[in-house]
């Protein structure tokens, strides 16, 4: 589970995500059809064999197909990224990783083939690109929604509140001015879990509602949790201003 961490600094690259993804998709398709020939041609071209070999370095004999927490730590160390850095979430999103802290071999291969990475250096060179994905509002929304299922305890339908807070901090902490208030609200409330609907609507809320709450429509379809948050925050602010 990620510790509270700031999001990556402002990223200079333009969000050229769509084009890139399609391009890499094409590459992958052509690659799968004629892999051997390509590999022999250029040494720095992507090799799935090398990619899998690299993966194996992080797995144990007990479970050769899954990269577990220990391997994850080593992987992060080698590419020079802290595990709780938001870029790891984007990477996991690219791989379509199902469970936080683990990569399966197929996830790994899919994600890295997509990115055309089979070495540490190549992944490092992609990190900036991965960060730019966060700048595109649609991609961010997908990552945000993905994060819910990624971080959720798979035994439960909903995400427990501490995980939720940490993930929100990671994803929205920097951009959503009301996040700190929201965390405070959650702490004093009786909410123990956050369901997916609430999760999705928190993003909408952070994007559309003014910091002074002036455009919050109580009659809208906002989940009750957000109604209560707004009520709480207004009360908090009034209490502060009248005293």
């Amino acid at each position: 589970m990620p510790r509270a961490k700031r999001r990556a600094d402002v990223l200079p690259m333009p969000p050229a995500d769509e084009g890139h993804r399609q391009a890499s998709k094409r590459q992958r398709q052509s690659y799968t059809s004629s892999s051997s020939r390509r590999n022999s041609k250029a040494d720095d071209a992507f090799s799935s064999k090398r990619c899998i070999m690299w993966f194996k370095r992080y797995t144990t004999m007990d479970d050769p197909d899954t990269l577990g927490p220990d391997g994850m730590e080593r992987f992060c160390q080698e590419i020079g990224v802290e595990p709780e850095n938001v870029v790891m979430l984007v990477l996991a999103y690219k791989m379509g990783a199902r469970q936080m802290g683990f990569f399966t071999q197929s996830e790994w291969l899919k994600g890295l083939t997509d990115l055309q990475c089979d070495t540490i250096a190549k992944v490092q060179s992609k990190l900036d690109y991965l960060r730019t994905l966060l700048n595109d509002s649609n991609t961010f929304k997908s990552i945000y929604r993905y994060a819910y299922d990624f971080a959720r305890d798979k035994d439960q339908r909903s995400m427990d509140i501490d995980t939720a807070k940490a993930m929100l901090q990671l994803l929205l902490g920097k951009h959503w001015i009301l996040y700190a208030h929201f965390a405070q609200f959650v702490d004093q409330s009786k909410y123990k879990v956050i369901n997916k609907d609430q999760w999705s609507n928190i993003l909408e809320f952070s994007r559309t509602i003014n910091t002074d709450l002036s455009n919050y429509d109580v009659d809208g379809a906002w989940p009750v949790m957000l109604d209560e948050f707004v009520e709480w925050l207004r009360h908090q602010r009034n209490g502060g201003s009248t005293s």
Binding site: R157, S158, N195, D197, Q198, S200, W222, P223, V224
Partner: peptide, 19 residues
């Protein structure tokens, strides 16, 4: 209104409907 919303959320959570 609150009750309606709560039930809507319950139904969403149990996948009878979605937003």
């Amino acid at each position: 209104k609150k009750m309606i919303k709560e039930q809507l959320e319950w139904l969403i959570e149990h996948k009878y409907m979605r937003r």
